[in-house]
Design a protein around this nucleic acid. Structure first.
Length: 638
RNA sequence: GCCGACGUAGCUCAGCAGGUAGAGCAGCUGAUUCGUAAUCAGCAGGCCAGCGGUUCGAAUCCGCUCGUCGGCUCCA
């Protein structure tokens, strides 16, 4: 007699050792059809597994959060089977589940996406046949024998410590796998192959290059469709596309990975920085600027020459080596070190919007997201050990304020001491404690990444979440125990003795270029008024009114608004259409009515039009919205 | 850097069994003077990324270079 405890606490009795499927069937047929696996005493296993003793069982249905991963893993097997059917000489390696699907790395001749339809067709056949997926345990020796011609599988097996190993079989296809898997291939209903790329065996460039084929899968077609729709939406928002369409920035072969900002892009850029400066002034920061090119001996002292030279642009001038800065910190150290500091001066919060250059690999460049030249909204804070908590807290609050202005949510992660690190235990203890207690005091949940800190200190990262729910690591607060040492920084303490200051680097936008790109995608080009490159578009209804419209434009410009007048001899319809496509938040049409009454008619991007707003009222409301940097356009709602 | 795809007018793209480049939009000119998402007509615009090769002939085929995009972190 076997007793199975279900999640609701009820107990089912079985005369014979049941499988998960038997448990499901004992509840209902429908449930059994919908089950993909079970959790047996806290472990995810196949539904077909026989339960040997009394146990707690939770059935995993297609609606359970774990189900998708299990099914996607099975989908990877279905894809592998299809590939083997079509390319019998291919050698399989690994095929894990990833965030939005799965992939399989296969040693085979390079394939392109053209092969997808063939592979997908074969997969469909396998899915349609609802081939049972069966688990089989074999000894290590048996497994080695089975895979004698499969070098990758052999390598994996020999690395396994378990004495016996599990195989999964579906029809003529067998794969080494830990499982669990869905009961049969019919569960892989809605799938699509997404892309293919090269990847190295064990991610090591000296190993063979494999074909990595990516796919995604869902339990029903509707979910797959909505995922594809999401991708489409993201594609439409692509900042490279929008940046071109709205004339914000461009890239040129003459300077790969380095953005050129156009007048309209600069309008946004300057707003971002004006805002940044205001917030930092209010938070007690001063601003500095250090050269972008400095002599080799500085970089030797900071350690960059030894550890970061690969990524640095280096030049020789008058027979001396110079490097273009990849980071702002060494310059900041020189500024701190140029005079004596008293404990009374601390904390010193020195901001620097510094232009840095890093020679990233050509293949990783990606619009504004990954560039070789970018500005960091850096700041270095120098302080005494007992100021750590307050200072970190101050940064976290600033982070919250600034992201909030853009309507961006965020989450925090704390990374602690890695294996390879400098500094004493005590220093790490004080530093990590400081970050932790600041986080506690701040009160927001955070994720702990043990051992993920930099070798020179622990850090807190801020990940923002954009309008599509995608996350981006932007802000970071890093404690640095190396640089104050290397530059022999000090302050005179209360006891009249020299002490080493604690130093943090922190950024909030991170890379301004990248943050810019994120904002473009976050807002899909429809910037809030304060950021919009053209805030007001003026459309005279006919050519005769154009000069008067120009006067109106001047009045608005004097009031500090960025305006653009469309005085072409085009139809009003066309001007409206283009203004909408250019995402101008306030579109004013100017005709005889407006001329006579001294009012404006305002069209907003949602297509709503309000007539008869007196020009002074318009200016006042718009200025207020801009001044408060509002996200919403709640103008003229009276 | 590596693998794959790609590079044609300012933009979006067609042309690619090798026969000497085309559309729409934007621009310019003219007509139209318009009340909230494309008025009409005409004109102009390209060393087909660059270099080399194959060929009687190359945007088209081949090689190299440059650049762009998707990957190269997810460990049975």
């Amino acid at each position: 007699m076997i007793s199975i405890t279900l999640p609701d606490g009820s107990i089912k009795q079985f005369d014979q050792k049941p499988s998960g499927m038997d448990v499901a069937l004992s509840i209902s047929q429908g449930l059994a059809r919908d089950c993909v696996a079970m959790e047996l005493d806290g472990r995810l296993v196949d539904l077909g597994q026989i339960i040997e003793k009394n146990a707690a069982v939770r059935l995993i249905t297609t609606k359970s959060p774990e189900a998708l991963e299990i099914m996607r893993h099975s989908a990877a097997h279905v894809m592998a089977q299809a590939i083997m059917d079509i390319y019998p000489d291919a050698k399989l390696t690994i095929g894990p589940v990833i965030e939005n699907g799965f992939y399989y790395d296969v040693d085979m001749q390079p394939v392109s996406e053209e092969a997808f339809s063939k592979i997908e067709a074969q997969m469909k056949k396998i899915v349609k046949a609802k081939v049972p997926i069966k688990r089989r345990r074999v000894s290590k020796n048996e497994a080695m024998e089975f895979y004698r011609d499969e070098p990758y599988k052999l390598e994996m097996i020999s690395a396994l410590e378990d004495a016996s190993i599990s195989f999964y079989e579906q029809g003529n296809f067998t794969d080494l796998c830990r499982g669990p898997h869905v009961p049969h291939t019919g569960f892989v209903k809605a799938f699509k192959l997404m892309k293919v790329s090269g990847a190295y065996w064990r991610a090591d460039q000296s190993n063979a290059q494999l074909q990595r084929i990516y796919g995604t899968a869902f339990f029903d077609k509707k979910q797959l469709k909505s995922y594809l729709h999401f991708l489409e939406e993201a594609r439409k928002r692509n900042h490279r596309k929008i940046g071109k369409a709205l004339d914000l920035y461009s890239f040129h072969d003459e300077a790969p990975g380095m953005a050129f900002f156009h007048p309209k892009g600069m309008a946004i850029w300057n707003e971002l920085l004006d805002y940044w400066r205001k917030e930092h002034r209010d938070a007690g920061y001063v601003e500095t600027k250090t050269p972008i090119m400095m002599q080799r001996f500085l970089w030797e002292r900071s350690g960059h020459w030894e550890n970061y030279r690969e990524n640095m642009y280096i030049s020789s001038i008058d027979e001396h080596d110079y490097a273009i800065k990849p980071m702002n910190c060494p310059g900041g150290m020189l500024l701190y070190g140029r005079k004596h500091h008293s404990y009374r001066d601390l904390p010193i919060r020195a901001g620097e919007v510094g232009l840095v250059h890093r020679h990233e690999l050509s293949g990783v460049l990606n619009g504004l997201f990954r560039v070789r030249a970018f500005h960091q909204d850096d700041a270095h804070i120098f302080m005494t050990p007992d100021q750590i908590q307050d200072e970190i807290l101050g940064v976290l609050k600033l982070v919250e304020r600034i992201y909030g202005t853009f309507g961006l949510g965020f989450s925090l992660e704390l990374s602690t001491r890695p294996e390879k690190s400098i500094g004493t235990d005590e220093q790490w203890e004080i530093a990590t404690q400081g970050l932790e207690s600041a986080l506690k005091q701040y009160g927001k949940d955070y994720k702990l990444n043990e051992g993920d800190g930099a070798f020179y200190g622990p850090k807190i990262d801020a990940h923002i979440k954009d309008a599509l729910g995608r996350t981006w690591q932007c802000g970071t607060v890093q404690l640095d125990m190396a640089l104050p040492e290397r530059f022999d920084l000090s302050y005179i303490g209360q006891n009249n003795e020299k002490h080493r200051p604690i130093m943090i680097h922190r950024v909030i936008y991170g890379s301004i270029e990248r943050f810019f790109g994120i904002l473009v995608e976050h807002f899909a080009g429809k910037f809030p008024l304060w950021l919009a490159p053209v805030q007001v578009g003026i459309l005279p209804i006919n050519d005769e009114l154009a000069p008067l419209a120009q006067n109106l434009a001047q009045d608005l410009q004097r009031a500090g608004l960025r305006t653009e007048t469309d005085h072409r001899s085009e139809s009003l319809n066309k001007k409206v259409r283009e203004a909408q496509l250019n995402k101008i938040p306030l579109i004013l049409t100017y005709g005889n009515k407006e001329k006579e009454s001294g009012t404006v008619s305002v069209r907003t991007l949602d297509g709503n039009v309000k007539h008869g707003i007196p020009v002074p009222d318009f200016i006042k409301e718009v200025q207020a919205n801009i001044k408060e940097r509002k996200l919403e356009m709640d103008l003229f709602s009276r």
